[in-house]
Design a protein around this nucleic acid. Structure first.
Lengths: 208, 208
DNA sequence: CTCGGTCTATGTATTTATACGTAGTGTCAA
DNA sequence: TTGACACTACGTATAAATACATAGACCGAG
C-alpha cells in the first residue's frame, strides 16, 4: 500500500515546515508539496496529485473555503482537510458546506492531525472532538437567530459606521437601523456598541 | 560548545510539535521543553534552565509580553525571542519594551527562525527584516501619537466599559474620560465608538 | 526659569445610542 | 385565508457620546 500523498497549504512557512518535519516520520504519509494559498494549491494539484490537502482557511489570494469548493468541483478524489484556529460554528459549517471532508483545530496534537489525515484519506469525515461538540451543540449559534438584515446591519456597525451612515448606505431610516440594533442587542443580550463590534468580529461578521 | 537550550512556548501543540521536530535536526539547538502559556514557561525555567525562550504572544493564562517582563526581572540570563503573527509596530515595541531580545514573525522561514535563536543566544537583538522595516518606518504608528492615558482609556472602551464606568475605575471624572476619547478620535480621525473599538482591537489595545 | 506635554476638568450644545412600546406591509407556508 | 416572520418606521424617554472651547496643575527637559 502506497503512502498518502499530502499537500500542505498554509501561508506560514514555519507551520508548513514544522508539519512537514513532523510528518516525515510517518511511513504512510508522504508530503508531496506545499502551497501558500488556495490558488497555488489548486494549480499544483495536477502536477503533485495529492490524495489529501491539509489546508488553512485564512490565507492571501484565495482562502481555504473557496479553494475547497473548487477542489470539490474539479478534483473530487482529493480530500480536503481544514486545519484552522477558528472554532466558530460558522467557520466549521462553511468549511463543510464547501466540500471539505474534515475540520481540525490548530489546537490539536500532531497525533490527532495524523489520524485525521488518515481518516479522510480512507473516505471518512473527520472532525476533532472539539469540533464535533460544536456541531452537535444544542446551543443555537447566535448568528442563526439573527436575520439576514440584522447581520448586514451589525456587519456595518463593526466596520465602524454610525447608524446614520448605515441608514444612508442601506437607504433606510436611522430609526430602522436603531430598531435592528435593538433587536440584535436583545437577542444577544448585549447593550453596548463595543460588545456588538466584538461579537461581529468574533463571529465572522466583521465586515471585512 | 554545548547546544543552545531552547524552551518553546506556544498554546498550539501543532506549532510546538512542528518546531520541535524541525529543530531536532539542529546540532546546536536542544529543545529542552515546551510550555503552553507564559506562566508555565516561567514555572519550568528553574528546572529546564533554558538559554533562549521562543515564545508566542497571544496565549491563555499569561501572554508572552507579561511573561517576557518577568523573565527580564527574574531570569536575566534567559533570552526571550518573540514569535508572533502580529506585525503591528505596537506589538513589536511592547515586546521589546518588555525585555525580549528579538521578534520574528510567524511568516519567516525555519532557517531564519533558527538564525534568530542563535543570534539572541549570542547576545544580539534580532528582528526579522520585516520587523526591522516596521521599526524603521517613517510612518508614525498612530498608537505612538496616543498618550499612555489615552491608550488606557480606549483599551477600556474596547472592553465594553462606558465612559461613566471608566471614570469610576480610573477615579477621574466622566468629563475627563470624554476629553480623552475626543482627543483620540481627533488624532485618529474617527467619530464613532464602533470605529474606536475596532481600532483598539486591531492595534493590540483590545483590553484582553 | 520657561516651555511643552500630559492629565485633569468644566461650560455649552448637539447628536447618537439604548430601550420600551406600537404597528403597517409584504411574503410565504399551511 | 390566516398566521408567522422579516423589514420598515415612529413616539417617547433617557443616557451616553461627540465636539468645540478653555484652562489649571504638574513634571521634565533645556
Amino acid at each position: 500500500m502506497s503512502a498518502i500523498r499530502l499537500l500542505i497549504v498554509d501561508d506560514h512557512p514555519l507551520v508548513v515546515d514544522g508539519l512537514s518535519s513532523r510528518l516525515s516520520s510517518c511511513d504512510d504519509i508522504d508530503v508531496v508539496g506545499v502551497a501558500e494559498n488556495g490558488e497555488e494549491a489548486i494549480e499544483k494539484t495536477d502536477e503533485l496529485k495529492p490524495d489529501v490537502v491539509l489546508m488553512d482557511i485564512n490565507m492571501p489570494i484565495m482562502n481555504g473555503i473557496d479553494a475547497a469548493e473548487i477542489f470539490n468541483e474539479k478534483y473530487k478524489h482529493v480530500k480536503v482537510l481544514i486545519l484552522s484556529m477558528h472554532d466558530d460554528k460558522e467557520y466549521v459549517t462553511n468549511a463543510l458546506r464547501s466540500g471539505a471532508k474534515g475540520y481540525i483545530l490548530k489546537t490539536v496534537s500532531s497525533e490527532e492531525m495524523i489520524n485525521a489525515v488518515r481518516s479522510v484519506f480512507n473516505g471518512g469525515i473527520y472532525y476533532s472532538p472539539a469540533v464535533s461538540e460544536i456541531l452537535l451543540s444544542k446551543d443555537t449559534d447566535e448568528n442563526e437567530i439573527l436575520t439576514s438584515r440584522e447581520q448586514t446591519v451589525i456587519s456595518l456597525v463593526a466596520k465602524g459606521l454610525s447608524s446614520k451612515k448605515i441608514a444612508s448606505q442601506l437607504d433606510i431610516s436611522v430609526r430602522t437601523v436603531e430598531t435592528h440594533r435593538r433587536n440584535v442587542n436583545k437577542k444577544l443580550n448585549i447593550s453596548s456598541t463595543s460588545a456588538l463590534v466584538r461579537y461581529a468580529i468574533e463571529h465572522g461578521l466583521g465586515g471585512d
